[in-house]
Design a protein around this nucleic acid. Structure first.
Ligand code: ZN
Ligand code: ZN
Ligand code: ZN
Ligand code: ZN
Lengths: 166, 166
DNA sequence: TCAATTAAGTATAATCATTTTCAAATTATA
DNA sequence: TATAATTTGAAAATGATTATACTTAATTGA
């Protein structure tokens, strides 16, 4: 954690920005909730718990700054709010997302699935890829398992009835 | 065009919705600007030219309805507005986009690039893919060509100077 | 050190896209 | 035709984000 903060501090300094206490508090919240996909409001409320004097505008500005420096990625899942996702250290590409249309969960795929696809795009469309956004919408493994379980139970019921019919 | 409208009409009727004059006008604008990526406001202004009495709220409602029926896809390129994209007839998947970070243009890729990737996602992450959003950010072929042209001209200049130096 | 400059922060107001409300108009149903 | 249900348009409300005005903290350089 501290190492990570220090490296982010260096990234800021490299662009003549300071890691002020408010910015540090914001970064800490992002680090502590790395697997989540927090909106600016979410971040604000979490930062407030530790640094109650911070303003919402500062959080927005900090997130915008971190976005510009590619420390966080801004992403929108179609619910009207931007969400901020810490870029994994050493990651050359923005990770992918699995959005469940049943339970609303958002899972991540860190593995790069687009290497070949990007080669095709560069060759065939003459487009120099710098970044990407890939989101799948569908049914997550938890919901799929739930369905299987329900099917199993239903079949059992069917089975109980069968003998009566025969 | 008329055939396309009729098929959309049937899709609406199948779900007990009517193709009112306002809805038809909206669909026509989408058809006439199929290669664009119009915002609700854009659609509103274009519809107004032909049906000046229409209200913005009606356009929003119509676009929302068409979204639900999968006749249009709603997409967000990160500029704070939703854009509405007619789904191509017979297309099983939402097409992909190339957003140029230099000139802002948005090009489309109709070809399905994710077939293999989706198989991997289903197998490895146990996620049942229903839809996807794939956008590449980078430099479009027009801007790349412009750069090449500039480089060529610069080299020519260099070449002109060379003799003086020698 | 200390005044001057600059960067960053806060609170509030403004903006802008989108949604909601509600009365009027249209269309379907009995 | 009367009645109910759907759809619309105008205006108001909402909610996320950005801009403004002022304050505070940090930096600079005599
Ligand atoms: Zn789920
Ligand atoms: Zn993520
Ligand atoms: Zn371009
Ligand atoms: Zn498109």
């Amino acid at each position: 954690m501290e190492g990570r903060i220090n490296r982010i501090k260096k990234q800021l300094h490299a662009q003549k920005y300071k890691l002020t206490p408010q910015r540090e508090a914001t970064v800490r919240v992002l680090l502590e909730n790395e697997q989540d996909h927090l909106s600016a409001e979410d971040v604000y409320l979490l930062v407030k718990e530790k640094a109650p004097e911070i303003g919402l505008a500062t959080v927005y500005r900090t997130l915008e700054l971190l976005s510009e420096l590619k420390i966080v990625d801004k992403i929108n899942f179609g619910d009207g709010v931007s969400r901020y996702d810490l870029r994994r250290e050493g990651a050359s590409h923005f990770h992918h997302h699995l959005v469940c249309i049943e339970c609303g969960s958002v899972d991540e795929i860190q593995e790069d699935l687009l290497g070949e696809v990007e080669k095709v795009v560069e060759r065939k469309w003459h487009f120099k890829v710098k970044d990407h956004r890939l989101t799948f919408h569908g049914i997550c493994h938890r919901c799929l398992e739930k369905h299987e379980e329900e099917n199993r139970l239903n079949k059992e019921k069917e089975f109980e009835k069968e003998p009566e019919k025969v």
